Structures are given as structure tokens and as C-alpha cells.
Computed example of a mutant assay.
Amino acid sequence: MATTDAANSGIVLFAHGARDARWAEPFERLADTLRSLRGGPRGGPVSLAFLELMSPDLPTAVAAQVASGCRAVTVVPVFFGQGGHIRQDLPVIVDQCRAAHPDIEIRCATPVGEDEAVIAAIAQYCLRQV
């Protein structure tokens, strides 16, 4: 596969979803922060996708990034751990996205809650609460 630069490399933040639209607000703030860190639209797209109860779903979000010119898409599960949705559901959905876009590199990161820096940041937050 050809190498890609940030402008044609997208990020999809993948979250569970909920019935209450307010539940997505922190994920929207995360996406906005990430867009800013990437330099705005010139830094490549950042979008949200949801497993259930909200839209867009992951195939729709990936298709939108591909339509906007992305040659690579990284799916970042915004989950704290690797439960059944991450171990069972997500690989199936990512494989569907890869089958739908065979010329696009679609990567999947580990859940954010598995990263040591995220754990350390949460621990620091907890310490500030006491």
C-alpha cells in the first residue's frame, strides 16, 4: 500500500452509542480537540461512529471519509476495555469496511482505555478529586 499523509488519512472515533443524545457530548468534544490538534480540515478528517443507538455507524463513517479522499482510515475505539463489543463485534464490522473499500488501508487501534498514558491521565484526574 502507498504511504499516506495526514491530509488523506482519517480518524474515526468509535463509541458505543446511547439513547440520550447528551451522552455523545464528550465524544464530540474529543473529536473537536483532535481536529484542532491535527490542524483543522487540512490535517485530515476526524469523525465519530457508533455501534448502536446513534448514527452514523462505522461503515457509514468510513465510507464518508473514503468519499472525501482518504486513502487510509484509523478506527480508534473509545472504549475503556475490551469487552464483547470490541472482541467480537468490532472485528466483524472492520472486516466489512475493508471488504467495501479494498483499496483503502483501514486500521484499528486498541481501545483508548488500554493505553498506559490514558490510564495515567485518569489516575491523575482521580487524585485531583480528593
Rank of each mutant, 00 (worst) to 15 (best):
Q88H: 15
P26N: 14
R42P: 04
G43V: 07
D32R: 11
N8Q: 12
Y125G: 08
G69Y: 03
G44N: 06
C108L: 02
V46H: 08
C97N: 03
A109W: 08
V94A: 04
G10P: 03
D95S: 10
S68I: 01
D89W: 12
L30G: 13
P111V: 00
F14W: 14
R71V: 05
A15V: 12
A123L: 13
A100Y: 06
F79A: 06
N8V: 06
Y125V: 04
A6N: 11
A24P: 04
P111R: 05
F80C: 07
R71P: 02
T60W: 00
V112S: 13
R29S: 14
S68R: 09
C70F: 01
G69R: 04
T4M: 02
L53A: 14
T60R: 13
R107N: 08
Y125F: 11
A7W: 05
P59Y: 04
P45Q: 12
I104L: 07
A72V: 00
V66H: 01
H101L: 04
I86Y: 10
D103E: 15
M1V: 12
E28P: 02
D32Y: 02
V12D: 02
L51H: 15
V92P: 01
L127K: 10
A49T: 13
R19S: 13
P59N: 05
T110Q: 08
Q129D: 04
I104R: 06
L34F: 06
C97S: 04
M54L: 09
V112P: 07
P26H: 15
P41V: 10
T3R: 12
L90P: 08
L90S: 10
G40E: 14
A117G: 12
Q96K: 11
H85G: 10
R35N: 03
E52R: 15
T74E: 11
P59R: 03
Q96Y: 02
N8A: 02
P41K: 11
R29Y: 10
S55W: 11
A31G: 09
Q88R: 11
A99I: 03
A72I: 00
A6I: 01
V118S: 02
D5Q: 07
A49L: 08
P77W: 04
V66R: 03
G83P: 05
A120L: 03
F50V: 01
A24S: 15
A7R: 12
P26K: 15
Y125P: 01
C126Y: 06
A121N: 15
V46W: 05
L90Y: 07
A72K: 11
E116H: 08
W23P: 08
Q65C: 12
P102S: 09
R71Q: 09
V92F: 03
P26W: 14
G17D: 08
P102D: 10
P59Q: 06
Q129M: 12
L127Y: 05
S68G: 13
E114N: 05
G39A: 10
G84T: 14
Q65F: 01
Y125D: 06
S68W: 00
H16M: 09
F50Y: 15
L13T: 00
C70T: 05
T4G: 05
Y125A: 09
F80N: 02
